[in-house]
């Protein structure tokens, strides 16, 4: 009898596999060992290139490549159709995707078509004693962890937050890349992409040191950015700064932006709104600088500095420059 399978969606961007997909492969491999299941990476596109081999090195026992020129770039409806058919044929036990914009767009639609359960933005994955996938989701401003199982159908689906698991190089025996020519007869997509503007930003969730600017230092953004540069840190911003268009969404920290996993984070002028807090929950050391002694941010900080940031920043710039 064939072994049961854990499938992992391999998101392309477009020349590489997204880190989150490789991170999930690593965790899936551990779960596979625990429950005697094999790990299969699933990728869609025009040509597999060498991406299949990269997945095999990161924990996949096998890669399935769904090939069609229509699948070169992502579309909700074409990708859903292609995945729905192959999943229905092979029926994996588990199907995991990254909780990225694309992964979340796809997972909702696909799970509804498959009539199966989907758990969102998962921060922990395990197999319980009955063999079900146990997906951990923080709730209510990260005060609780709800562990969720999908009991009624297969595959059990979850989207996994980037930066939670670490990608690992795993020595393999001989994995294969199975290429399936789909020969799709025209696109079913009703949404047309007119234009796209994408910049390559370093992924904040993996930065070791981050300096965050909030509303309180809106007027000093340039100085905060300069400071990040001097101290070898990445710049992050709170939601209001991104909302006002003063910084890219790619720099936004919080529940609707990045969740950081930094060793050290320095936070200037952020009030500590509930949507911000999950973004720093996994950081090792948090230093906050805020004028308001009563600010909520201090509840979630290791070092609380009640001060005018515009006085502190020039000193830090001077000291940093002297090094």
């Amino acid at each position: 009898m064939n072994r049961k399978e854990i499938w992992v969606y391999l998101e392309r961007n477009p020349e590489e596999i997204e880190d989150v997909s490789l991170e999930i492969l690593g965790r899936a491999k551990e779960l596979g060992k625990k429950s005697d299941m094999s790990v299969v990476g699933v990728m869609l596109g025009k040509e597999p290139g060498n991406l299949g081999d990269i997945a095999l090195k990161h924990g996949a026992d096998k890669v399935i490549f769904l090939k069609d020129s229509l699948l070169e770039s992502y579309s909700t409806e074409d990708y859903t159709k292609a995945l729905f058919e192959i999943i229905n044929k092979r029926m994996p036990e588990i199907f995991l995707l990254g909780a990225t914009y694309q992964g979340r767009d796809l997972a909702g639609r696909l799970s509804a078509r498959l009539r199966t359960g989907l758990t969102a933005n998962v921060v922990s994955l395990d197999i319980d004693t009955d063999g079900y996938l146990l997906s951990g989701v923080p709730g209510y401003g990260s005060k609780v962890l709800a562990e969720i199982i999908c009991v009624r159908n297969k595959p059990q689906m979850s989207t996994v937050r980037p930066g939670i698991f670490s990608k690992k190089l795993i020595p393999i025996k001989a994995g294969i890349v199975e290429v399936l020519d789909l020969d799709l007869q025209g696109s079913v997509s009703r949404v047309r992409v007119v234009s796209r503007k994408v910049e390559k930003h370093p992924d904040l969730s993996r930065a070791e040191k981050v300096i965050i600017a909030g509303n309180g230092v809106e007027g000093n953004l340039d100085m905060v950015a300069k400071m990040a540069d001097i101290f070898g840190a990445r710049l992050g911003v709170s939601r209001p700064i991104a909302d006002k268009g003063k910084a890219s969404r790619e720099l936004q920290v919080g529940s609707t932006g990045y969740s950081l996993n930094a060793k050290l984070v320095l936070i200037f002028g952020v009030s500590g709104a509930e949507h911000f807090l999950p973004g720093i929950a996994n950081c090792q050391t948090v230093i906050s600088i805020n004028m308001d002694r009563e600010s909520d941010i201090f509840e979630y900080s290791d070092y609380c500095v009640v001060a005018d940031a515009s006085k502190i920043i020039p000193i830090l710039l001077r000291e940093g420059g002297d090094r």
């Binding site: 009539r115 199966t116 359960g117 989907l118 758990t119 319980d128 146990l134 923080p138 709730g139 990260s142 005060k143 609780v144 962890l145 709800a146 562990e147 969720i148 199982i149 999908c150 009991v151 009624r152 159908n153 929950a281 996994n282 950081c283 090792q284 948090v286 201090f298 509840e299 979630y300 900080s301 290791d302 070092y303 609380c304 500095v305 009640v306």
Partner: peptide, 23 residues
């Protein structure tokens, strides 16, 4: 009509913050 159920709720322990005041 649901496919998923919450198996259990636990307190979510992230890092305990020290809240040291820098004066």
């Amino acid at each position: 009509g649901s496919y998923t159920i919450v198996k259990r709720l636990t307190e979510y322990f992230t890092h305990q913050r020290q809240r040291i005041s820098v004066e």
